[in-house]
Amino acid sequence: MTNDSFPSGVRSRPISSQFLILKTTALFVLWILLSASFDWIHLGLGLVLSFTVAWVNSGHSPFVPKFRLWGNILFYLPWLFVKIVQSSLHVSKLILHPSLPIDPRLINVETNLGHHGAVVLLGNSITLTPGTITAEVDRNTLIVHALDEVSEQDVTSKSIESKIAAMFKDEEPDL
């Protein structure tokens, strides 16, 4: 446990019992869904395990649920999926084309997201879309490898970035 390193038994961060219960419940529901067996051994074992995992993790988790942001991300994912399908078809067309008309390039992308989570989301979204891959990240600057002109425009048009910036506009900048 994390608290052993602190003198005179001072807790680094008090465990919120509400949060502990929330975490245990979430893990237990996941256990039930995945095990799909309802005899006492499975349920009891699941309850003990999910409580243990929640308890072990609660001491050093700065993780606070932000439901608004998660809701935004939930609406963002289908939009991203449409983009993924479009660029998948484009990349398949490039690969199957007899003359292989690719023109790879490295591009520098300057963003002004100013938020760790936002930059991670942007980098992952760019990598998930076939035809563009985030090769390097340094704070607000990304180096992206693009397969051709059309793929490059996915990134340079800033359509993904503006979506993410809109989702994170209420968050405190931490970059």
Partner: peptide
């Protein structure tokens, strides 16, 4: 460029 194909 091969990594683009793999991401497909």
């Amino acid at each position: 460029s091969r990594s683009h194909a793999v991401s497909l």
